[in-house]
Design a protein around this nucleic acid. Structure first.
Lengths: 148, 148
DNA sequence: ATTGAAACTCGTGATCT
DNA sequence: AGATCACGAGTTTCAAT
């Protein structure tokens, strides 16, 4: 079942672009920017939330400044019998796991990890390796990153 | 030179937690939640921005609903002589590249890609392979994902 | 769907403890 | 640091188009 695809016009895309740059932009600011009334902008944002295009708003944090300077991706290989939802759950229980991506092919999953230091990272990887039906891991340490 | 680490106390962490859940939460709402005055919450958020802990606010989007249903990670290998900033730039020029992570060891970089369909993904990967000093790629197709 | 106006809520800066 | 006050700015709803 493919996802329903709501109509999103050029104005909606401009609003989304503005909110990507600054998710706390005011409706008035956006209204002035794109030449619509405040109420119209609000209605569009409300509709984008209702249709699920906008799933939420969040704050962007420099984790290094909070003492979480280590970032890594770990590829996980599982036993052939392991169901996908089990793979998803493995990492959910480890708070340092930021995201889990199940993968078509090899490896079976890619997870994004944040740690305070290398010792901490090691402990997390050990815990993953001990967990259930993981047959192998390969960890990619992030040196630097850039996000659009 | 390690990053300067500003003092962030338990109250700041609670504020960050609230803003992670909903980046558009009002100061009054947060103030009521954690038992502080509105102005106090505002000053803390302002300070978190000034010290660089908060780098911004953004909207979270369901890209599949916008017709960008394909997500993939591609590992890139470069010639040994390629400088890191060149690696960073490779992908910057391709709009479908969402993020670039330079990696310690093998591969040299991991990039996150979004595409409309498999044909589109193929074109992006072809373009990466043709670009400059890339010696090899391995693409991991995302089946499903979960983010904390 | 968009607008404009009214009523309400919020953000912001000054001032004081 | 945090609280309180005051005012300008932003939000939300609704009738009208």
């Amino acid at each position: 079942m493919p996802e329903p695809m709501p109509d999103v016009d050029a104005l909606d895309h401009r609003i989304l672009g503005l909110l990507r740059e600054d998710g706390r932009r005011t409706f008035s600011e956006m209204a002035a920017e794109i030449g619509l009334s405040v109420a119209a902008v609000k209605r569009r944002v409300d509709r984008l939330r209702e249709t699920g295009v906008i799933t939420g708003f969040t704050v962007q944090i420099d984790h290094a400044k909070l003492g979480w300077g280590i970032e890594a991706f770990t590829e996980l290989r599982y036993q052939g019998t392991t169901p996908v939802d089990r793979i998803m759950r493995t990492a959910t229980e480890i708070p340092e796991v930021q995201a889990v991506f199940t993968i078509a092919g090899d490896p079976d999953a890619l997870i994004r990890i944040r740690a305070r230091d290398l010792g901490h990272l090691q402990k997390i990887i050990d815990r993953l390796r001990r967990a259930g039906d993981v047959t192998g891991t390969k960890t990619l340490m992030v040196l630097a990153s850039w996000t659009r």
